[in-house]
């Protein structure tokens, strides 16, 4: 078995681990729904909502110097979910999956004798690794474990699709032999990972906002677990914070790409299809950032922009690379 065979095997293993993590995270959401129903049954419904949210804000009153209390009031969940084994199993499986995935990525790189992000298969492999990596790093700062289903689900799908792009190890063609490959593509993938997380948060935000608008009693909620998630406002703030990091990486991708294009093709910008889409994505996210600061655009509308922006990122990766003609025809297909 050579290194690349090992890499392929490891990647399958990681995929399986993520799938198991997905199941555990889904289990946790189901458990949350059950708890919400129990809470709704236990007390007069509206009283639950009130009392649990005031309890939350009192925790942050005078003389408490805990650093990780929720910033600002109103961000807390209506119902506090209990500690859940399935949630911890999900995180553990994700971490394990990440380690195996990392091994797959590194061995692929060693087998190829270069960075493992030079064709579609490798972009997918490294990109998904970064999505999980960023998710795990963010988890150390914010409890976003409720996104586990979403993130592992997305990665399972992307990795599953990436087999369509599988290519054997091959050396780099001359146009790719550049230090900018290392920087430009890596930063683009890193940016994508943050934007993916922002996307996930925006989606949950939209659902949550809808639920809040309806002002349903707990027992009337369709997706009950929503009551255990942060408020739409807080989700929006979180989405914004990860998205702007993604945006900065994207800005850097754009600039690094232009510098590379200058040395490879003799012009820094030529409206090549891939350049066009990178630009479109950048502009959509600039719109998103403005929307966040504009009355009437905050909230649901800005969430839509974040979702459209990430849809464009996926389009740029999945559709433009494969079906569009242009100078970036290196996807190895």
């Amino acid at each position: 078995m050579d290194l690349n065979d090992f890499s392929v095997m490891a990647l399958w293993t990681a995929l399986a681990l993520y799938a198991l993590a997905f199941i555990a995270f889904t289990f946790d959401l189901a458990r949350r729904s059950t708890e919400v129903r129990q809470a709704a049954d236990a007390v007069v419904p509206s009283a639950v909502a009130r009392s649990s949210s005031t309890a939350g804000s009192e925790a942050s009153s005078v003389r408490t110097l805990t650093v990780d209390r929720p910033t600002g009031t109103g961000g807390e969940a209506r119902v506090t979910a209990s500690r859940s084994p399935s949630l911890r199993v999900g995180v553990a499986l994700t971490i394990l999956g990440f380690v195996v995935h990392l091994a797959a990525d590194v061995t692929r790189g060693i087998a190829a004798g270069r960075v493992p992000w030079a064709n579609m298969y490798e972009f997918a492999m490294t990109g998904t690794l970064l999505i999980i990596g960023v998710f795990l790093v963010v988890l150390t700062r914010e409890d976003l474990r409720f996104l586990g289903t979403f993130v592992t689900g997305l990665v399972v799908i992307l990795l599953g699709l990436s087999w369509n792009f599988y290519v054997e190890v091959a050396p780099l063609i001359p146009a790719l032999q550049s230090a900018w490959l290392v920087v430009h593509v890596f930063v683009a993938s890193l940016g994508t990972a943050f934007l993916a997380l922002g996307f996930a948060l925006s989606v949950v935000q939209l659902v949550q906002a809808r639920q809040e608008r309806l002002q349903l009693e707990l027992s009337a909620l369709k997706m009950r677990f929503l009551a255990t998630l942060p408020s739409a406002d807080r989700l929006e703030n979180l989405a914004y914070r990860v998205s702007i990091i993604g945006f900065i990486f994207w800005t850097f991708t754009l600039i690094a790409g232009a510098i590379w294009a200058e040395s490879a093709w003799g012009r820094y910008w030529g409206w090549d299809t891939k350049e066009v889409w990178t630009f479109i994505i950048w502009v959509i996210y600039a719109g998103y950032i403005h929307a966040r600061a504009t009355r009437g655009w905050r909230g649901t509308r800005s969430a839509w922009l974040s979702i459209i922006g990430f849809a464009a990122v996926m389009f740029n990766f999945g559709i433009v690379n494969v079906f569009f003609k242009g100078l970036h025809a290196y996807s190895g297909l």
Binding site: T273, W277, I280, V283, G287, H290, A291, A293, T294, K325
Partner: peptide
């Protein structure tokens, strides 16, 4: 106004799309 800025930004993004669907004299 900020509102106009958002609309123009979105318009710019949309206006850039056809150039990726139809070949361009400048690049192809």
């Amino acid at each position: 106004s900020m509102r106009t800025a958002i609309l123009l930004l979105l318009l710019l993004a949309i206006a850039a799309i056809p150039g990726s669907l139809v070949p361009q004299r400048s690049s192809d």
